[in-house]
Computed example of a mutant assay.
Amino acid sequence: MTFDDLVEIYRHTRFGADGEGTLTIASQPILDSIREIDADPRLYDDVQIGLLDDAPPALGAEVRIAVGHPRHSLGLLVRDFDALFQAPMAAFEEPARYYVVDPGYASGDLPVPATLARYRALLDVVAILRNAASYVDEVQRELVFIGDEKTVVPIAFRAADLVPGLEANAARLKRVFDGALHGDEKTEILATAVVRLVGSLRQSVRFSHLVRNLDAVCDEVEKGYRLFVSSFSYSKIRDDVETARIEFVGKIHRTIVDIQGQLLGIPVATIVVASQLKSATGCGLPFWTNTAVLLGAWIFIALLAIAIVNQWHTLTVLDTEIRRQQQRLADDYALVSGEFADQFDDLIGRIWWHRLALGGVGGVAGLGALLATIAYLMLTARGSGACFLFWS
């Protein structure tokens, strides 16, 4: 048996105050349902509807029945909207299937009562408040805000608290939070407004006071967000990105400028080595001159290699920082971040070319040192290694 079958029974029942009612068997489906329930104890346990009269039910007759709460998975039977709002999880989402005795409304019926329409608007507000709260206790139905102090807001309300302006104010609040831009800042502003409004009240009335004064919360959030946005503009972001780009370009260029002296020394050292190496046939002055020149060349190469490695690491740090700034821009200003993608790509491209240049410089210097070593070995007679032993 489905909850729709139960709703048909509820609609034709005059409910009393003691869990009893009078059912008018107005149709064959109702009669079939009553007979089925009366014949199956397990079904009775699920639907909690029982006949109180001894006479068998008949079409068109009125019978007294006992009506209880059906199994929760079937649906909810509540006396009024206040009881509906106290149902499990009803503070966060509308129950899927329910029947409200007063005013005789079942979920899905049209037109929607004004109280239910305001309740649905309130659920939109609760969803926004959940994101602003530090944490949410669904079992206790509490929103907890932690700032200078811990502020607990129990989600307790009645139909009388759902004032006529609730739907319009809920729509105002939703408009502020539409879109992902500045989401963290918006929720922080909302949390501050809520704590300021209800923090001094006793817990039991905080949420109802918040609902009744939702227009004041909307005003506070809108004003706070306008104040925040006043410091945010496209031109300001563009200027900040351009300033950062110029700074990064300078740092990237310095990776070459800082070792420019060593780079200029490469051709000088090559010329010196080429002009100073002479043919050496023994352990005389030419041999020691050639050895000193070659040793100087390799010392220069070692110092240059240290400088290149150091600048390579500098470029790695700059690359990481540029990508971090790019991601931060995408997170904070997602709507306009694409406008500046080319500038970040240009910086990353510059780093790639500077790395290529550093690698080329290191390769040329190493090749020069290798050629100098080959020239040294060619100009030095075989067996000259004994000169080092003799010298020592």
Rank of each mutant, 00 (worst) to 15 (best):
F15K: 10
F92T: 10
R11D: 09
S33E: 11
S337V: 06
K236H: 09
S33R: 13
L264Q: 13
L304Q: 03
Y119Q: 09
L285F: 09
L347P: 07
V272I: 12
S73L: 10
G224K: 06
L116G: 08
D239G: 02
V211F: 00
I237K: 11
V63T: 10
R79T: 13
T192V: 04
L285S: 14
G75W: 00
P103R: 06
R42L: 14
G199V: 07
D240L: 13
L201V: 01
L74Y: 02
A244S: 12
K236A: 14
W288F: 10
V126R: 06
D53I: 04
A91E: 10
L6P: 03
A58R: 14
V217Y: 00
G282S: 14
V126F: 05
T2E: 13
D240S: 13
D54F: 04
D148V: 08
R158S: 15
E20L: 11
P286Q: 05
L52C: 04
T270W: 02
W353K: 15
R324E: 14
P111F: 02
P164K: 06
G368H: 09
I25R: 04
Q311E: 12
F157V: 12
G363E: 06
E321Q: 13
P286V: 03
V67T: 01
D215E: 14
R130A: 06
D18L: 10
D102E: 12
A121K: 06
L190S: 02
I34M: 08
V144Q: 01
R172I: 07
D215L: 04
L123Q: 05
V126D: 06
A280H: 08
T13E: 06
P57N: 07
A381S: 11
T151Q: 02
T151P: 00
E188V: 12
Y44V: 10
Q326R: 15
D32I: 06
S230L: 11
L335P: 04
V100N: 02
D82K: 01
E220I: 01
R206N: 01
F3R: 12
D219V: 08
V336D: 08
S392P: 00
T24P: 01
V361R: 05
K150P: 00
V211E: 00
D40E: 12
T380Y: 01
H313Y: 09
G147K: 07
R42D: 14
Q326D: 10
R79L: 03
L335A: 12
E321K: 14
A365P: 06
R130P: 05
Y44S: 12
V47C: 05
L197V: 00
R355S: 04
L166Y: 01
K186S: 00
A193M: 05
L285I: 12
P29F: 05
E93T: 11
L6S: 05
G282E: 12
I155E: 08
W352T: 15
G261S: 13
Q203A: 14
D215H: 08
I266P: 04
T373S: 15
A168C: 03
D46R: 15
I351Y: 00
V309K: 11
R11L: 09
D32A: 15
I308Y: 02
L59Q: 13
L356C: 08
Y99K: 02
D80K: 08
N213M: 01
D102L: 10
R350Q: 15
D219P: 02
A302L: 14
G147Q: 13
T291Y: 13
I128M: 07
T281H: 05
C387A: 11
G16M: 06
L181P: 00
F92C: 11
G265C: 09
L77N: 00
H354E: 11
F340V: 05
